[in-house]
Design a protein around this nucleic acid. Structure first.
Lengths: 150, 150
DNA sequence: TTTCATAAGTTCTGTTTTAGAACTGACAAG
DNA sequence: CTTGTCAGTTCTAAAACAGAACTTATGAAA
């Protein structure tokens, strides 16, 4: 199965991964959340090749995750800003961070990456909660996906 | 930068993506959450090549995301079960699902994938909430990551 | 007692993707 | 008129992936 075929599957995870499922895409988006907007800044911060960065930014712009905005006229220069669908990726970034902090910090050599929730002013531990009862969600408590597997 | 070098970065997202950042890994894990445990079942359900599946299962076992368990002696047969670190990936799977449901369902042709929270018995909309004030977390309300970018 | 079926891989060949470095084009400043 | 900035594009070699066939161990069927 080719990558682009994934995007046509009747499964939202497969469709998500057809866009996000590679080594670089979510790192580019992470840096966008930290304020990076310009080609050369992404490139220097990430160490990604210019070729791939160009490809990924185009793809993400096409999918309306980034918006390409002209910020200068002569010469014409563009920057990339998170669009709505891009901003909506924040929970995924946050949960990847939390998982990495907990499960890939073998010797506690890495200080945990912390985030502040500005409205309440505290360092927050992001939790996944049920919209109906408010309890934290755990894999064991969930009914299996009702989805086509194949 | 090579893939394995990502895992050595001082950033939990980079470390997470050094394991999860490809087309297949999270799909394999999704199917594991749906109850799949055996090589051939993963292979048939996903349409992944046997070579890649073998490689990914080994990698994930090495990283203690799966546990390889012998379920038969003659001939020796093994199955793959989610270990603790694997079960902890559930929020990521759930948020990828939610994002795909909302943002990659252009013509509403795909019925949303729904999950039931067994303790309360309702179909739940998983929400990311602050551990301190209980409010839902949004990108705009968060203080920028305090992390090494490069 | 060959033959088929099952399960979990491994091997092979050809195609695609990626890494790394150099190059381009439009302009500005010294 | 040389150097620097920014946003890319082009090139080549290396790595990863797709698709199909093959292997190994066993039990059941013809």
């Amino acid at each position: 199965m080719k990558w682009h075929e994934l995007g046509e599957m009747d499964c939202p995870i497969a469709r998500s991964l057809s866009i996000l499922g590679d080594r670089w895409t979510l790192l580019i988006i992470r840096n966008a959340f930290m304020g990076t907007r310009r080609f050369d800044d992404f490139q220097k911060q990430l160490g990604i090749t210019r070729h791939l960065l160009s490809d990924r930014l185009n793809r993400l712009t096409e999918k309306d995750i980034f918006t390409k905005v002209r910020y200068q006229d002569a010469p014409k220069r563009y920057e990339y800003r998170l669009a709505e669908a891009g901003l909506a990726l924040y929970p995924i970034i946050l949960m990847l961070t939390k998982w990495g902090n907990i499960w890939l910090n073998d010797d506690n050599s890495h200080p945990p990456l912390q985030v502040i929730h500005k409205p309440c002013g505290h360092v927050t531990d992001p939790q996944l909660r049920c919209s109906e009862c408010g309890e934290e969600l755990h894999a064991r408590d969930m009914a299996p996906f009702v989805d086509k597997v194949g």
